[in-house]
Design a protein around this nucleic acid. Structure first.
Length: 760
DNA sequence: GAGCACTGC
């Protein structure tokens, strides 16, 4: 039979051995009779119970059997029959399952038994929004399949590819990693099935992948796609992946294993949520049964303050009534906390002070990290004030900022669920039930609607089929940026320059700089600066040692600009590699510096691949000037002009009044500055600032700085002064010449910049 | 004279 020939287990045998004793052995082998994509749950269950590992063909370890018993108790295991029926019948499936259902670990394995990717050199991929999840789940699944991590089962995250080409057939990876791969291979031909896990989190990468996969499904009928999500926003995905709106994609539901959580609301809205939260925690501590508390607040400062207050008040309660109130510890949790201190959340609650006295209690006060990234066992009470800091993007002034905003109902549900991990729990919401129903949004806005997403050079941003399309103005801003950078041509197509820019895991301004930098003999330096700007801030400033930290920083500061200071810091770090305490002594984050070194290496490899030469200017004065010129090539849209004598600046074209951030190391207030970041705190500030000359702006971004495109004001007058001076020196530039220059710009080596005037 | 929700390539 033709089907018999497809039998993947027999296919492994050399033809000479088929129909021999070897075939007899094969017939008792674990995958015997498996037909790709026609596998049944019965067959799989039998294989799982088999003594031999179907993938390594060695006997299973006792450990395997033990793990298998726990796997069988997972809710998803009981639904295996239904799963295979649906998978065999459809190309795209949407799945929902609560935490604890086992979907992340089991479904990809189930799929592997159906696809048999190891017989075809294909891979089943499962994406995760976070690196730690990709790593830890891969480890768990390797154990479950009784194989070594990095062989049949592996993971792939930035800087770490834990897979073995030709052997790995089940791969966990970050969504960003798969998106990168999709840019090189739009058909994703290595994969037989792609599973997008945690799709409800709607990360930028997952959202773009959904769009790419939807299109890919049509040209690759052999590719299966599974969208897995935790909350009940599945209908949106079903409709999106449905065939011509008429029939939505099928939904597979897995029932969870969480314990029930009782939810309480306040009768009246709370005017001060921090104060109300502290009261709620103390109320629970006094009146409720043993069990730890998780309180959600919005940021570092708020959390540290609340911890101090809770601790103080609880100690007072214990002093007043040691007979009935137990000791309490309060543990802060946010991501910028060093990992060692984050581990404290796993400390046990404090002991009773006297034998038989009231039990102690642990309170964890956390940002949103505890909502998705970190799970704390033993939490029985959740206090949810209903707020978190969220990124909002204002395309009009091109500014991303963080704002304390009400959470969504989905988020509130997720938070409440944290109380039911180990036993039935309680969730105290510090808002009214009516507000929950009417004021909170159903879902948190997907990241794609909240960010400036020029960062992904997706081909055809406009006609792309989004799950939720960004605001037209956001799209326009992204296109505008890419076309000013010469990454897009007038028709909106990616230019050759744009294609190379898309290879760098960077915002387009940075990749533009890197590609321009050899022309200025300073690509080594720009590479370092880019790496330093791509990692968290290297500056440490402990509360009790601010003066010392500032003094240390002053010694490393280059007065011409903060970008040059970053270069200096990195070079000093590399020169002092022998001294393990160097970073600490200079109030610098060793973690961030190591990360910068890592990023730099990765970018260097990409530059080598595209033959972007690594060059340095020897003379320090010239080198610094060249670097500042290259900064203009990438960041000419982030420039501000000084207005008046009060130290105010006006951002170019957007006309925002901003001040130099106090952390800025410039020793003067230059007329023109280029900035890396706009932050909105007590007032609008620009941060990481470098002194630039207007001639450079006119030279390297002539279209953007054409004075005719400016509204009347000091900035325009200043630009006109410079052009007049130039014209006087080199003769007038008529409009025909201008057109010619524009064309020359497009045809220049990279189409990057053009020399507007004869070189000096 | 300020601060940093959280991820990811």
């Amino acid at each position: 039979m033709a089907e018999q020939k497809e039998n993947p287990y027999l296919a492994h045998l050399p033809p000479s051995q088929r129909g021999t004793g070897m075939q007899k052995a094969a017939e008792s082998a674990p995958l015997f009779g498996f037909l790709p994509r026609k596998v049944t749950a019965n067959q799989v269950r039998k294989t799982l119970e088999h003594d031999m590992n179907p993938f390594t063909k060695v006997p299973h370890t006792p450990q395997y059997k033990k793990i298998l018993e726990t796997r069988k108790k997972l809710p998803v295991y009981a639904q295996m029959d239904g799963f295979y029926k649906m998978l065999n019948a459809h190309q795209i499936i949407v799945m929902v399952g609560e935490t604890g259902s086992g979907k992340t670990t089991q479904i990809p394995q189930f799929v592997a038994f159906s696809d048999l990717p190891h017989t075809k050199g294909k891979i089943v991929a499962c994406t995760q929004p976070r690196r730690v999840a990709a790593m830890s789940v891969a480890k768990r699944v390797a154990d479950e399949l009784d194989v070594q991590l990095g062989r049949q089962v592996g993971y792939s995250i930035r800087f770490e590819d834990m897979t073995e080409p030709g052997t790995t057939f089940l791969k966990y990876m970050t969504d960003g990693m798969l998106l990168r791969e999709a840019m090189n291979d739009p058909n994703l031909s290595r994969y037989s099935t792609i599973i997008l896990d945690e799709a409800h989190e709607r990360t930028l990468a997952t959202d773009i992948l959904m769009g790419l996969l939807k299109a890919l499904a049509k040209t690759r009928p052999d590719l299966k796609i599974i969208i897995m999500s935790a909350t009940l926003d599945a209908l949106k995905f079903q409709k999106y992946f449905g065939i011509k709106n008429s029939s939505p994609a099928p939904l597979f539901k897995i029932f969870g294993r969480n314990h029930p959580v009782e939810v309480f609301y306040t009768q009246e809205p709370e005017p001060d949520y921090v104060e109300a939260a502290i009261r709620a925690v103390l109320m629970i501590h006094r009146a409720e049964d043993p069990g730890d508390i998780l309180l959600f607040l919005t940021g570092e400062e708020e959390i540290e303050d609340a911890c101090r207050n809770i601790k103080g008040e609880a100690d007072e309660l214990v002093n007043q009534d040691p007979e009935s109130v137990g000791p309490l510890i309060c543990i802060p949790l946010y991501s910028s906390l060093p990992p060692q201190q984050q581990q404290r959340i796993f400390d046990p609650p404090p002991q009773a002070q006297t034998p038989g006295g009231p039990r102690g209690r642990k309170v964890v006060v956390s940002t949103n990290v505890a909502e998705t990234s970190l799970t704390i066992d033993g939490i029985v009470y959740v206090v949810d004030p209903g707020f978190s800091k969220q990124k909002v993007y204002n395309p009009r002034i091109r500014v991303e900022s963080l704002l304390v905003s009400p959470i969504s109902r989905a988020s509130a549900q997720q938070r409440a669920g944290r109380a039911g991990r180990t036993r039935p729990g309680k969730c105290f919401r510090l808002y009214t039930e009516k507000d929950f129903e009417t004021e909170l949004e159903e879902q948190t806005h997907p990241e794609i609607l909240r960010s400036n997403f020029g960062k992904y050079c997706v081909r055809d941003l406009v006609r792309f089929d989004y799950v939720d399309a960004p605001a037209p103005e956001t799209l326009m801003r992204a296109l505008e940026l890419l076309s000013y950078l010469a990454a897009l041509d007038d028709d909106g197509n990616l230019t050759p320059l744009g294609s190379i820019m898309a290879e760098f895991p960077l915002d387009p301004q940075y990749s533009k700089m890197l590609i321009c930098s050899p022309e200025f003999q300073c690509s080594n330096e720009i590479l370092t600066i880019t790496a330093m700007l791509s990692v968290p801030s290297v500056w440490l400033r402990p509360n009790n040692q601010r003066k010392e930290a500032d003094a240390a920083k002053a010694l490393l500061t280059v007065p011409d600009g903060d970008h040059l200071t970053l270069l200096n810091v990195y070079n000093s770090y590399m020169q002092n590699k022998g001294d393990r305490n160097w970073a600490w002594k200079n109030y610098l984050s060793a973690r961030a510096l190591t990360q910068a070194e890592n990023v730099r290496q990765q970018l260097e490899r990409i530059m080598e691949r595209f033959e972007v030469a690594l060059l340095s200017t020897v003379d320090e004065r010239k080198r610094y000037i060249n670097i500042r010129k290259v900064l203009c090539c990438g960041f000419f849209m982030q420039v501000a002009h000084k207005e008046g004598e009060k130290g105010n600046y006006l951002t170019v074209k957007d006309n925002q009044v901003v001040g130099l951030h106090p952390s800025c190391g410039l020793d003067t207030q230059p007329e023109w500055v280029l900035f890396n970041e706009f932050v909105l705190t007590t007032r609008p500030y620009i941060r990481t600032v470098t002194d630039v000359r207007p001639e450079w702006l006119l030279e390297y971004a002539p279209v953007y700085f054409d004075p005719a495109s400016f509204r009347d004001g000091e900035t325009k007058r200043a630009l006109l002064r410079i052009t007049a001076k130039k014209a006087g020196k080199f003769g007038r530039v008529d409009s025909g010449a201008k057109k010619k220059q524009k064309k020359r710009a497009a045809n220049a080596h990279w189409g990057i910049y053009t020399v507007d005037f004869p070189p000096q």
